[in-house]
């Protein structure tokens, strides 16, 4: 690549990053703004961070969000991984039917998924945190299945059989042979389920019922009354945590790579 072309590509990437990160920068700046107004800079302050833990509203919503996100993504991972293994060993025709049904939540519009689940839930259970967890599992299981399946497909059955021939029990052979191979798929499925659940608004909004609020739905109701500045502080913290986590994971991978090349 010539230098001009290289420079132009970096400039382009930089512009797209600016576009993606400009709003985040604005929110981070707002979290340090000593003014109730969103457009006036009233000086630097840390008070929104200080006040954060004493704001019961926000802490409650954060707790709800964490409970819903963790329980739904863990359950979706268990359900999805066992489903992927089952589907992998099914007859082709049956597997095709299952995969077709699995695609439905991915392809359907969020608003339709949310509404259809709400219509079902209102018949059988009062809407609340439990119904939101069910709804989140419903839209995140497909991500797990489609992350685990390719791993299973590239798995050699001979290894598993060899383990069995050498006297391993099916459980032991699975744990020692199959699991290490599919684990990266399970992990990326789990992370996708986690991200989707954390970022979801529409489906939560329709299935939550009164009184239950995640951070997203709380923000939506606050839009009219004005956002509490502590929320900027909280999301800055969450964002930085994700960023640090990413850096650490990246660093670890580099170390492992270096160890391998040595």
């Amino acid at each position: 690549m010539t230098n001009v072309k290289k420079g132009a590509s970096y400039l382009y990437l930089g512009l797209v990053f600016l576009f993606l990160y400009a709003p985040i920068l604005v929110l981070i700046v707002l979290s340090f703004n000593d003014s109730m107004s969103r457009t006036v800079w009233g000086g630097f302050t840390l008070k929104w961070y200080m006040n954060l833990t004493s704001n019961d509203n926000i802490m409650g919503a954060l707790g709800t969000t964490i409970r819903i996100t963790l329980s739904s993504s863990i359950l979706a991972t268990i359900l999805g991984t066992s489903a992927a293994i089952g589907i992998h060993y099914m007859k082709k025709r049956h597997a095709a039917i299952m995969l077709g049904a699995t695609n439905i939540p991915l392809l359907n519009a969020d608003i339709v998924t949310g509404i259809s689940l709400m219509l079902l839930f209102t018949r059988f259970t009062p809407l609340g945190e439990f119904s939101v967890v069910l709804a989140h599992i419903a839209f995140s299981v497909p991500y797990v299945i489609f992350n685990v399946l390719p791993r299973l497909q590239s798995l050699s059955e001979a290894c598993y059989e060899a383990a069995m021939d050498l006297g391993a029990t099916p459980m032991y052979a699975f744990y020692k042979v199959v699991w290490p191979e599919i684990f990266p798929g399970v992990l990326s499925g789990f992370l996708m389920a986690l991200t989707m659940s954390l970022d979801d608004f529409t489906i939560t909004y329709f299935t939550k019922g009164a009184g239950v609020n995640t951070l997203s739905t709380m923000l939506y109701t606050q839009l009219r009354k004005g956002i509490q500045s502590e929320l900027y502080a909280l999301s800055t913290i969450l964002f930085l945590l994700a960023f640090i986590l990413l850096l650490v994971m990246n660093f670890k991978k580099d170390v492992r790579k270096e160890a391998k090349t040595k």
Partner: peptide, 26 residues
């Protein structure tokens, strides 16, 4: 570490989407 650069495109999703759109309003 190309994976890192690719991940930078997903990272904004960890800032609440409602807030990001609100930031565009500002």
């Amino acid at each position: 570490n190309k994976g890192f650069v690719v991940f930078l495109f997903i990272l904004p999703m960890w800032m609440n989407f409602m807030l990001r759109i609100l930031a565009w309003q500002i």
